[in-house]
Design a protein around this nucleic acid. Structure first.
Length: 522
DNA sequence: CGATGGCTTGATATCTGACT
DNA sequence: AGTCAGATATCAAGCCATCG
């Protein structure tokens, strides 16, 4: 017997449509589980917050979880612990049901609690009535078997119970049994995942042992949830297999610093970068690197000021943490004034580290050296100088806006490629295109978006500007993928409605942009 | 060697549905 | 009402190749 997933564990947000049966307030409350009467006047060796001397009844709240939608709200460790210690009611707000595990959704935990109690009842009945092969019990199990058989031909269930108390609705019973089966499968899957995680943790631990890492807090990066990561994984794994038979390839040094020292591989390196950037902005008294903030910075030094600085004349600009000034128009590494600024910054930063200013940021004190601060600062200044130049360049405001638009277009292209991968992955018949076509493309091969309207409040629309090398057939195929992606977004199957911003509204146009066709397409 | 353009990518902001 | 999850858009930052 198989119920469609949506009928039992559907995650659609539209409960009215996907509810396997209605649960309107006007309906009679759900009553006893099948076979309840045979448990009457018996004490139960478990506690679920019910009177052990009373026959077991499903409460409406317990009924609701397995039959309605699944919440994606997960239970945190503390909440699960709370329940374990206090044995709260499963319906209590914000309190997960008994037996909940961290990471489990509320609805899943309700389903588990409900189903587990059914199992316990069945086991209890077995022990109370003797072995299952005894005549009295055989009849009970024969009843359940009959219900199962009946359920096969009675899949449409509108009311969980018939009017008579203690008379099970066969369809509902079928769903309970199916639910038990599902929970069992879910549990098995969860155990497999946990096993994999445990093995991964063990490998990580081994790796960490072999690498000197500071004992201070390690910031865990948010994992990439995007298909981009998966794509790259596919490509990388292919390369690895070709190169060294699947062994993890050694990371290629990205700059000459790595040839001498591996410190940029240390988890503390990005933390140092963050602290350096924050401190840099603080000394410059700016909040961000946006145009209006960078415009507040003092102008480049005049020739007179430079001469005074070089001669050490009275009145020359002094660099202190309180009056921190940089000439962004001149070289950071060769201009003497900027070199003095660098020394000032490094000295101040090292003092801050010694005073424990960055402890809360997780920066290990022993990791910080002057050379590393100089390295990190240098990279950041390169970036800030670049932004500064672009803002102060003689380009017109229109030119600047165009550059920003171009940047935004490019940033969207990777999202576009991701969505097309997702669209291909969602249809079995399209997966060959994913493997044969999309893997050849990168974000630059995607069409661009140009904003169409700037009306306040109206949903933004974008005109598609396709690469000129793209054939009409390929263009149509890409549009089709976009259409599928939007359809998937609008009509998610097997999960709740897609949250968040809707995909961009992209309108076809005759606009073209130059570019080179990716290798492999010609 | 530094400047520059083009590009990718992680982090963050923002929005909305679902849930407690 | 408040919170969380999951989605996209944008920002911030860095890498790489090229040029002078």
């Amino acid at each position: 017997m198989q119920l469609p997933p949506s009928a039992f564990l559907g995650t659609s947000t539209n409960q009215n449509q996907h509810y396997p049966y209605s649960q309107t307030p006007t309906q009679p409350p759900p009553s006893a589980l099948p076979g309840t009467n045979m448990y009457q006047n018996q004490s139960f060796p478990y506690s679920m917050g019910v009177d052990q001397n009373q026959p077991f009844f499903y409460s409406p709240s317990q009924m609701q979880a397995p039959c309605g939608t699944f919440s994606s709200t997960t239970i945190r460790q503390g909440q699960a612990d709370l329940y374990s210690s206090t044995n709260h009611s499963a319906t209590q707000s914000q309190t997960p049901p008994h037996g909940s595990l961290p990471g489990m959704s509320y609805a899943q935990s309700h389903l588990l609690a409900t189903s587990m109690s059914s199992v316990e009842h069945a086991q209890h009945a077995r022990t109370q009535s003797g072995r299952g092969d005894e005549p009295a019990h055989q009849s009970s199990f024969a009843t359940i078997r009959a219900i199962e058989q009946q359920a096969d031909t009675n899949m449409e269930v509108d009311v969980p119970f018939s009017g008579k108390q203690n008379q099970p609705n066969s369809g509902y019973m079928a769903m309970v049994l199916d639910g038990l089966n599902h929970v069992s499968n879910q549990f098995e899957k969860t155990m497999n995942v946990m096993d994999t995680v445990a093995k991964g943790m063990a490998r990580l631990e081994e790796d960490m042992k072999s690498r000197p890492v500071s004992p201070t807090k390690v910031v865990i990066k948010k994992p990439l949830s995007r298909t981009r990561r998966n794509r790259r994984k596919v490509v990388e794994s292919d390369e690895e297999e070709n190169d060294d038979g699947g062994e993890m390839a050694e990371t290629r040094p990205r700059d000459k610093h790595l040839e001498d020292d591996n410190y940029t591989e240390n988890p503390a390196w990005p933390i140092l970068g963050r602290c350096v950037r924050d401190n840099f902005k603080r000394l410059l008294k700016i909040k961000s690197l946006k145009c209006e903030q960078l415009a507040k910075l003092p102008p480049p030094l005049t020739d007179i000021e430079i001469a005074k600085f070089e001669n050490g004349d009275e009145g020359a600009i002094e660099n202190t943490p309180r009056s921190f000034r940089i000439d962004f128009s001149r070289s950071w590494r060769t201009f003497a004034f900027n070199q003095a600024v660098e020394q000032c910054f490094v000295k101040h930063f090292m003092q801050c580290v010694q005073n424990g200013i960055f402890i809360r940021s997780g920066l290990p004190q022993e990791f910080v050296t002057k050379e590393r601060v100089i390295h990190s600062l240098g990279r950041h200044v390169d970036y800030v100088r670049r932004e500064y130049r672009q803002i102060n360049a003689s380009k017109s405001k229109q030119k600047r806006i165009e550059m920003l638009q171009h940047k935004a277009q490019n940033a969207h292209k990777s999202t576009l490629l991701d969505s097309r991968f997702k669209a291909c992955g969602s249809r079995a018949s399209l997966q060959r295109h994913e493997n044969n076509l999309l893997v050849l493309l990168d974000a630059t091969a995607m069409s661009g978006d140009e904003t169409d309207n700037e009306v306040q409040g109206a949903p933004k629309t974008y005109l598609i500007s396709r690469p000129h090398w793209q054939s009409p057939e390929m263009k149509d195929f890409m549009r089709k993928l976009d259409h599928i992606y939007r359809e998937n977004w609008r009509n998610p199957h097997g999960r709740r409605a897609t949250a968040g911003n809707a995909p961009r509204i992209r309108i076809a146009s005759n606009r073209c942009k130059p570019g080179h066709a990716p290798r492999g397409l010609w």
